[in-house]
């Protein structure tokens, strides 16, 4: 006769060993090809070892043999979502070294282009953030509205993402005659659409649960690791280069650097959304 034992299952008593999981480099959520070696215990991440460089393209080495105007075409491939800022950074560097002053008009054009680039970059960020969390609709909303900015770019400089628009000493062409009107129309339209974004994603319970109090980054860590941009500012790190070391026409633009102190994913999200509104203000001037 066999003895029967009572088995009690309690979830907090289950013991799992730590194990290594390889994530990436072609994982859908590691945008831009990143490989992470993750040490897990159940769902707790104990350690991550990042392996970077899967799309390192050796641009520095290539630049050694190219002239300055040729380099421009490489720099917008560094980040195809902020192509114009990368172009401009090289231009400003060359102009600074050569002691060349660019015309006022160029400064204004570059600044407007910067802000449009930032805005479309944020739109893509917003829609893929939703998509990575399983909310596919956001992807369509974001890309639909982003098209308008890309159209404006295309009309002026012929390219939609890798603009190649700035050159040392100026910009490649003057803006298209329709430019001003189209930008103003876009701002008017998009201002109406931004509340839709909030309705669709920001207030969503699943989204809140997965971002609120998740991924905390302290101010000390943000500074020590050099986390800049909206991610740093969500931890209270005042690091807006447009405020601290303003370039082009930024000294003349009236805008506020948005700071927050909570430092979790949701704060970073909200800060980027507030930045979108900020861009309108900058563009309106």
């Amino acid at each position: 006769m066999s003895e029967t034992k009572e088995i009690i299952i309690s979830t907090d008593k289950i013991h799992t060993d730590q194990y290594l999981v390889n994530m990436g480099p072609q994982h859908p959520s590691t945008h831009g090809v990143l490989r992470l070696l993750v040490r897990l215990e159940g769902e707790i991440v104990h350690h991550i070892q990042p392996h970077v460089g899967y799309i390192h393209s050796g641009i520095e080495k290539m630049c050694e043999a190219l002239s300055y105007p040729q380099i421009i075409h490489l720099t917008d491939r560094m980040d195809y979502l902020s192509a114009h800022m990368n172009n401009e950074a090289v231009c400003l560097c060359v102009e600074n070294a050569l002691q060349v002053e660019v015309p006022e008009r160029v400064k204004y054009i570059r600044t407007i282009m910067d802000e449009l680039t930032r805005l479309q970059s944020h739109q893509l960020w917003w829609c893929v953030m939703g998509m990575d969390l399983g909310a596919l609709t956001t992807f369509f909303y974001g890309l639909r509205d982003r098209e308008h900015i890309l159209d404006i770019f295309e009309e002026t400089c012929g390219a939609r993402m890798t603009l190649n628009y700035s050159l040392p000493g100026g910009v490649m062409f003057d803006i298209h005659p329709n430019f001003q009107k189209r930008v103003k129309d876009f701002i008017k339209e998009f201002r109406k659409k931004l509340p839709e974004y909030d309705q669709l994603l920001t207030g969503n319970v699943i989204f809140q649960e997965r971002t609120n109090d998740i991924g905390y980054l302290s101010l000390e860590d943000a500074i020590a690791w050099g986390v800049t941009g909206p991610s740093g500012r969500a931890s209270g790190f005042s690091c807006d280069v447009r405020k601290h070391q303003p370039y082009s026409a930024y000294p003349l633009v009236d805008f506020q650097e948005k700071l927050d102190t909570k430092g979790d994913s949701f704060t970073r999200y909200r800060l980027r959304m507030r930045r979108c509104k900020n861009h309108f203000a900058s563009l309106n001037n």
Partner: peptide
Amino acid sequence: RLFLDDTWGFPLRKDYKDEVRIVER
């Protein structure tokens, strides 16, 4: 090493010879 594997030289040194490069200056 951060990007490259251990068999590479050090590509940003001025005396590094890039066999594949077409443009020479």
